[in-house]
């Protein structure tokens, strides 16, 4: 477990996991938006919600992707620290806006650009920290 260096290969796998993760979120949002107002106080209502969600193909596509992510994610975790892998997985927060700018020509508010910059700076710091031999503290 001494091979904790972050390589380009691991980074690419992390980005791939992020893409899949985005797909999962999309599928789950789709399966949860059944048009029924989920209400815990009414059992009948909760059951209808559960039924609609369980029979949604989106839920199952999402679940299969979850297992795929589990395999890739475990492999990544065997190589690097958890406190490096998780922050680096925030790549999707940059990926989605960038894709929507380049391919969908969406306008992005200034505040979001500031946020994206913060995330990029954070990712650079975190990835550098895994290359250092000893932590500074």
């Amino acid at each position: 477990m001494n091979k904790k260096k972050l390589t380009l290969k691991i980074l690419l796998f992390l980005i791939f996991t992020d893409c899949l993760e985005t797909l999962i979120q999309f599928c789950f949002k789709k399966s949860a938006a059944t048009g029924i107002d989920f209400n815990v106080s009414s059992i009948a209502n909760a059951l209808t919600f559960l039924k609609l969600t369980l029979f949604s193909p989106y839920l199952w596509i999402g679940l299969i992707t979850v297992f795929l992510v589990f395999i890739i994610w475990s492999t990544i975790l065997s190589k690097i620290d958890l406190s490096v892998a998780v922050p680096l997985a925030s790549f999707s927060y940059i990926l989605v806006p960038l894709v929507s700018v380049i391919f969908l020509h969406e306008k992005i508010p200034a505040l979001r650009w500031v946020g994206i910059c913060f995330i990029i700076i954070g990712i650079i710091f975190v990835s550098r920290s895994s290359k250092e031999k000893e932590a500074l503290l």
Binding site: S83, V84, P87, I121, G122, I123, I124, F125, V126, S127, R128, S129, S130, E132, E134, A135, L136, L137
Partner: peptide, 9 residues
């Protein structure tokens, strides 16, 4: 988790 990683996080 060193200083750099905290700042990044």
């Amino acid at each position: 988790v060193g200083f750099t990683r905290w700042i990044g996080t």
